[in-house]
């Protein structure tokens, strides 16, 4: 492990700063229970740490962050896909699922860049 590697540094910054934002996205945009969101955030961080070391992964902080946001949205979406018998009642979550993870990931990234909070659950 090279602590001076710029990609390593970017990963550490993202994991330290963005975990809260990821969890909030799962709760607010995807309506996940807090406990479930916390568990998935931990798994997403573990996954992201390895993803950053795959060949073919971009190295800039912005692009790396987008990889994490993008997978977060896929995971949130699949959470509801797996609950065929339950539909979310929350209007924000219904909109999120209707637009799909790619568009939501883009929105979440914009929000992050503008330093905005996720919508209220």
């Amino acid at each position: 492990m090279d602590s001076n590697d710029p990609t390593e540094k970017n990963v550490r910054v993202i994991l330290a700063q963005d975990a809260g934002f990821i969890e909030a996205t799962l709760v607010s945009d995807y309506g996940l229970p807090r406990e479930e969101a916390a568990r998935l955030t931990k798994e997403l961080c573990e996954w992201f740490d390895r993803l950053a070391r795959r060949p073919g992964t971009p190295t800039s902080q912005q692009s790396l962050r987008y990889q994490l946001i993008s997978m977060t949205c896929k995971v949130g979406h699949v959470y509801w896909t797996g609950k065929l018998d339950q539909q979310p009642s929350n209007e924000t979550v219904r909109r999120t699922l209707a637009l799909g993870p790619e568009i939501i990931a883009f929105e979440v990234e914009q929000r992050f860049e503008n330093n905005e909070r996720p919508p209220r659950p």
Partner: peptide, 19 residues
């Protein structure tokens, strides 16, 4: 994106990166 692609595996400890 479909439900087939993202797995929710059981928790298990992975090897530390240093090892």
């Amino acid at each position: 994106m479909t439900g087939d692609l993202v797995h929710f595996p059981l928790h298990s400890e992975t090897l530390p990166r240093s090892e």
